[in-house]
Amino acid sequence: MSESRVALLTTTDHFAEGYDPKPFGLDGLTQEQAIRMTGEFGTADPVLSEIPITTSRADTRVRHGGYDIRVVAADRNSCLPIDRMIELADEGVIGEFVNPAYSFVGLASQLQLRKEIGPAWAAKAKAAEAQAAVLVPI
C-alpha cells in the first residue's frame, strides 16, 4: 500500500465550487429542491464530479436529497476524507493520493451504474494510474 496510487470515490455528491454537476441540467439546484426530487434522482444516470484534491474546505460543496448533509457540510472528512488521504500520503501509509477525488449521487439508476457507467468510471480511474480505490458510501 505504501507504494500504491490510491483513488477516492464517494456517493455523497460533493463537488468543487464553480463545478456544479447540474443534475437534470438545472443550474443552482438547492438542497431543498434535491430533497423533493429524490424520486427523479433514483432513476437518473449518475454524474461524476471530479474534485481537485487541492480544493479547500471552503470551496467544497455538497447537495444530496437522500441523507442529512449537515455533518459532511460541517466537515467533509466525515465522508469525503480528502484531508486525511493527503495526510496518509504525506506519512507514507499510501504511495500517492490520486488527483482528483471523485463523487456522485449514489441515489441513481443502479442498473446503468453497474452495467455502463461504473465500468467507464473505473477506466477513468485506471487512466489516472490508480492502483487501488477507496469507495465511501454515505
Partner: peptide
C-alpha cells in the same frame, strides 16, 4: 450513523484510523 461513516465531524483521529483499517484490508 448514515451520513458520517468515517466519524463524527472533526474527529480526525478516527477518520484516519478508519481509513488505515480499510486500506489494510487491501493487503
Amino acid at each position: 450513523p448514515m451520513g458520517c461513516p468515517l466519524s463524527a465531524p472533526f474527529d480526525s483521529e478516527k477518520q484516519k484510523d478508519v481509513l488505515k483499517v480499510g486500506l489494510g484490508l487491501l493487503e
